[in-house]
Simulated scan of single mutants.
Amino acid sequence: MNGWPTGVGRRVFDTIDSTNIYARAIVNDGASPVWIMAHEQTDGVGRRGRAWSTQRGNFAATYLADIKDDLNTVALRSFVAALALYDALIDVGVSADRLSLKWPNDVLLDGGKVAGILLETAGVGPSHICIGIGVNLAHAPEPDKMETTATPAKSLLGDVGLNISAERFLDALAPAYDARETQFRANGFDSTRSDWLAHAARLGETIVARTPKGDTVGTFETLDQTGAVILQTAKGRCAIHAAEIFFT
């Protein structure tokens, strides 16, 4: 990877409640774009409000940036971030054939979750995007602390034997995200979508999309231009815009 991206700030904390909370608190300080990282996170929140605390040795960070697009386009940054994570994991020594991307915002190692992404907006308008990222560098959550239906967790140390510090990973992730963001701005979603699909988990296979209204079972065909997952079901093609994905 190249060096630290020009014009991007860096703030590293020993312990913090949540990097996303901190990011939201500084939206009016003129600090963005900036990476905010903590060696320990005590009160983080994941998707759907789930607890997302971070043990020492793991990676927790938020990228705070000004919003310069409409909100639908901003939401596509989950795919940009997923590709940046994929690139950074390869940069620190993970073999590409062990990695895949799970819609909408997880990175898998040998089929188990090693990293996740949470997008939030902040400020009036809103004015900023907060991209929260967690990576199991040294520790994977214990199975009894996870939902029974959750994708099994993996870690770089436990499953690959790589001992990567959080700051070393940040040094890989920041330029990787900068490169993927540049690609997105230059080419729109098309090239990002194509690259994401090239690494998609279970593409062409049967998956389950679970929403509050129930489960939709179908063959994972592609992503559309909005980032929705397209399933071929018994009732025809179906676009899923928000759901929990489960593998059969």
Score class of each variant (00 low, 15 high):
153 A>N: 00
113 K>G: 13
165 S>T: 00
168 R>E: 08
124 V>P: 00
173 L>S: 01
139 H>W: 14
113 K>W: 04
125 G>V: 08
115 A>L: 03
133 I>V: 14
161 G>E: 01
145 K>C: 12
133 I>A: 05
144 D>F: 01
169 F>W: 08
153 A>M: 01
181 E>Q: 14
183 Q>I: 15
132 G>A: 08
112 G>C: 05
126 P>K: 07
126 P>T: 00
181 E>C: 14
130 C>P: 08
181 E>Y: 11
158 G>Y: 01
127 S>H: 07
161 G>D: 01
151 T>N: 01
173 L>G: 04
138 A>M: 12
155 S>Q: 10
172 A>L: 05
144 D>A: 09
175 P>Y: 09
183 Q>R: 15
184 F>H: 02
179 A>Y: 10
174 A>Q: 03
150 A>Q: 04
114 V>H: 05
188 G>M: 10
132 G>C: 08
112 G>S: 08
142 E>K: 11
136 N>G: 11
166 A>T: 13
131 I>P: 02
138 A>H: 14
125 G>H: 13
173 L>W: 04
126 P>Y: 11
146 M>H: 11
169 F>P: 00
176 A>I: 02
173 L>N: 06
173 L>M: 01
132 G>M: 08
130 C>Y: 06
160 V>Y: 09
128 H>R: 10
115 A>P: 03
165 S>V: 00
184 F>S: 06
180 R>P: 13
166 A>N: 05
150 A>R: 02
119 L>W: 05
189 F>K: 12
128 H>T: 13
187 N>A: 07
110 D>R: 08
129 I>C: 07
115 A>C: 02
138 A>K: 14
160 V>R: 04
141 P>K: 11
110 D>C: 08
149 T>G: 09
158 G>K: 10
137 L>I: 14
153 A>Y: 07
151 T>C: 08
177 Y>G: 14
146 M>L: 15
127 S>K: 05
131 I>D: 06
173 L>A: 06
145 K>L: 12
124 V>Q: 04
147 E>I: 06
171 D>M: 04
148 T>L: 15
136 N>H: 14
